[in-house]
Amino acid sequence: MFPMVSSALGLINKFLEWFGDLGIFFWQVVRAAVTPPFAFRELFRQLDEVGSMSLPLVALAGAATGIVLSLEARYSLTRFGAKSLLPAAIVFSVIHETGPIITGLVVSGRVGAGIGAELASMKVTEQIDAIEASAVNPYRLLAAPRILACILMLPLLTLAADLCGLLMGWVTQALVEPLSLRQFIDSGFKGADFNDFLPPTFKTMVFGLIIGLIACFQGMRTRGGAAGVGRAATSSVVLSSLFVILADVVLVKLILIFFP
């Protein structure tokens, strides 16, 4: 019994220590990000890396989700005699939840692993130490642009995922029975307002913060050669995905409270 308790306490202690270190890391990044000189060139490079490079994957994931959602919703709503609600069900599901969360998870996989592995590799080969030894703040040069790029790009990628999801949702319906895009949009967006659209899209900025912050943190604290790089990449993806899902729970509740 006692070894179990002590190992549980050890785990809690480790988690709290990790969380404290993450908080200190975040503070260092914020301090570096708001004081000049600003690393604009690196920010633009990261906007391209996070945004343009993730677009095909996010669009594909959004499209696949739209098709699955359309097939499932058709089956369920037809069973309960509510087939007329099909476009609205697809639109609301995609915009409210599946678009943002799928984007968050796809980006945490692609970008989280990329950032984690890149920075970890730089860390174990002493390149980050060399940056610091050259009197350049690595939080300003490496972490801040990557985190900011994730924050700025997630809502835009979410729009792309939403668009592809809705289009493929419509195509899937149109293949089964005649339904014009106009009819789909009119019926789907009936009764929808900006509160249905903006908060779920902008909540992905928090996902971006989580993905960028955790990936940079895991990468820049790596130790132990090639194995350390692998561990950093894996833990970046696992932890950022986990925290994106947990944050989504909180954010959905907050959105329901503040944007009823």
């Binding site: 260092q28 390149q127 060399a130 610091e132 030894a133 350049v136 703040n137």
Partner: peptide, 19 residues
């Protein structure tokens, strides 16, 4: 870190594996 940067500008460091 930024204050240390001022000092580090007067220092050169050659890493063991060049980095």
């Amino acid at each position: 870190l930024d204050q240390l940067g001022e000092i580090r500008m007067k220092m050169g460091f050659l890493f063991q594996h060049a980095a």
